[in-house]
């Protein structure tokens, strides 16, 4: 009796161990597959589950939390979100010692390590409704900024609606504070100075063409005012 119980306990333990090994093997296979297939299929429902981690900083609706340096991402185009997540994962963004917000973001992006994770979360975030945010730059003069925006129009469009062909994202709903912060980072070489950041290298001289810090605030205020 005791012997048969021992055997059955052993068999159960063996079965549990086998299942564990099998599940571990699936994880390893999945990680290998993730690096092998760059365009895995997006699953919006899975993206919603994954977004739970993002919501701590970007908010439950993806509307952003300026106090954490997390911009509104709801409703941003899928291609842009994919590009950014991949840039964070590869270290093109989030590896500069002075880019504190991006340093927070990079480990989060690295948690999306199964095939389809990045695509799924991008698809879900893109499906969220965006919202016009209130202006947060009291020292920014949108009327003055309109003149400076002429440079930006070539890539980002006349109404800052973005242009996928040029990898130029829409800017209107990111938040004027975020636009100003990124322009300051491009100007300081915190973004766009690495040779691996080809898009950033295009953006940096544009940011440097702004004549002053006041111009940065003005153009950011103008871009924020374009949101509908």
């Amino acid at each position: 009796m005791i012997r048969s119980r021992l055997w059955s306990t052993g068999a159960v333990a063996l079965a549990v161990a086998s299942l564990w090994f099998a599940s571990t093997a699936r994880v390893v296979d999945a990680q290998d597959a993730a690096s092998a297939s760059p365009s895995a299929k997006a699953d919006v429902a899975h993206g919603k589950e994954l977004f739970d981690l993002c919501s701590y900083c970007h908010g439950p609706d993806g509307l952003g939390k300026p106090e954490l340096g997390a911009p509104q991402i709801a409703g941003m185009p899928e291609w842009y979100l994919l590009n950014q997540l991949k840039s964070f994962r590869s270290g093109i963004r989030g590896m500069h010692p002075d880019d504190e917000a991006a340093l927070r973001m990079r480990p989060m992006a690295l948690t999306l390590d199964r095939p389809g994770d990045v695509e799924s979360v991008a698809a879900y975030v893109s499906s969220l409704p965006k919202r016009k945010s209130e202006g947060s730059l009291p020292n920014g003069n949108a009327a003055q900024g309109q003149a400076f925006f002429a440079t930006c129009m070539a890539c980002h469009g006349a109404k800052a609606e973005g242009n996928q062909a040029l990898n130029a994202p829409p800017l209107t709903h990111l938040g004027d504070w975020y636009i100003a912060a990124q322009l300051q980072k491009f100007r300081a070489g915190i973004r766009g100075a690495s040779p691996t950041d080809t898009n950033g290298m295009l953006m940096r001289p544009m940011a440097l063409s702004l004549p002053s810090e006041q111009a940065v605030l003005d153009v950011a205020a103008y871009i924020g005012s374009l949101a509908e």
Binding site: R89, S90, G91, I92, M95, H96, P97, L110, S194
Partner: peptide, 8 residues
């Protein structure tokens, strides 16, 4: 220039 580690 800033030394940054390889990413992944």
């Amino acid at each position: 220039a800033i030394a940054t580690a390889s990413a992944e």
